[in-house]
Design a protein around this nucleic acid. Structure first.
Lengths: 186, 186
DNA sequence: TTGCCCATGTAATTTGTTACATGATTTT
DNA sequence: AAAATCATGTAACAAATTACATGGGCAA
């Protein structure tokens, strides 16, 4: 499981409360790993149990609505260092948009997928704009070693969004060039 | 859930037994949707229950080791047509290789991720070669409408593998240009 | 007739998603 | 003090992964 190491990495960069972590996963971590606050709290709990992170409860009153500050322990850092040397296969591909296209091909409905592809294009263009902002803001100056690695991660996100946007445009312009016909052939 | 529609699409293209479906998901469907045989059998069961696919048991003896032939029903085709018009958001990103890189950045171990990236490059180059073969074999001649849509799906796979291979090479050559030092700074 | 592979499945576990609950703080 | 919001959770569910089980056919 990688989520726990994503959290360890985040905490190694900066200690945080649960909600801060959640926001960081929506922002700068979101371009390579997504997680909801429910996942994050559950995982923080597990990581505390095995001593890889330590929670600082505010001394006055512990309880439900009270922010806890989480920090990585030295054990956690070792665990992260060990994991980092591991190898895994590329993530299995699951693109529902591609199923829709291929389904459209087989039932002969070439117009039915247009809206879905348009929506994808919209999202990927938005992401691309966001990542370019981050790129300009955080990585425009000569870089430290740490920044060079972090920049490489962002570049993957940039490449990916660019690829998707390009492909969506290719799909749309190809659909435009086909004879308009939204019903299956007889 | 998209797996059921992936299966419906596959069966709409050609009726199959469970094991044949599994092999098709390893091959031509694998570049946009992956599934194991366990998932496929379970889903075929559900799809039979709601009447979207129909199983033909060999008449002689029904039983466990006997191949069943599955085909999509007219209800299944309607369901597929309806679903095809839907819209969903791009799949959430989860790239463990990126976590490893970012973890390497924070613990200062720039050499530790090299093997993982090298492995990724290997796989993506292999996939790229496979997809190019499919491209040349199945899509080199003037296309029917159906083929044009199916070709677009393959092109997404090609773009994706190309993107990953390019990025892996960028990472490796960047790592090469950094001063060799495999331990965290003090 | 034993061992192996093929095809179909079951079961347990893990991971991710969706909906909701609780206590504290801030705003009106 | 009521309402909204923030922070931390719980619970139920769905999907995917991993390991294993069963029956049939075939080959040594």
């Amino acid at each position: 499981m990688s989520l726990q190491f994503a959290i360890l990495t985040a905490l190694a960069e900066r200690q945080s409360t649960g909600i801060e972590l959640t926001r960081r996963f929506d922002r700068s971590f979101g371009y390579f790993w997504t997680a909801t606050h429910q996942q994050i709290y559950r995982e923080l709990d597990r990581l505390s149990s095995c001593g890889w992170v330590e929670a600082t409860t505010p001394p006055d009153r512990p309880g439900r609505g009270q922010p806890k500050r989480f920090a990585i322990t030295t054990d956690g850092i070792s665990a992260l260092q060990d994991w980092l040397h591991g190898i895994d296969e590329p993530a299995p591909v699951r693109e529902s948009i591609a199923i829709r296209l291929r389904a459209a091909a087989v039932v002969g409905d070439i117009a039915g997928v247009r809206a879905a592809v348009t929506r994808h294009l919209e999202v990927h263009e938005q992401n691309l704009a966001t990542y370019r902002d981050i790129d300009a803001r955080d990585f425009s100056v000569p870089e430290t070693e740490t920044d060079i690695l972090r920049h490489l991660v962002l570049k993957q996100g940039l490449r990916s969004e660019q690829m998707w946007a390009d492909w969506c445009r290719e799909v749309l312009s190809t659909l435009d060039r086909l004879p308009p016909r939204s019903n299956p052939p007889e």
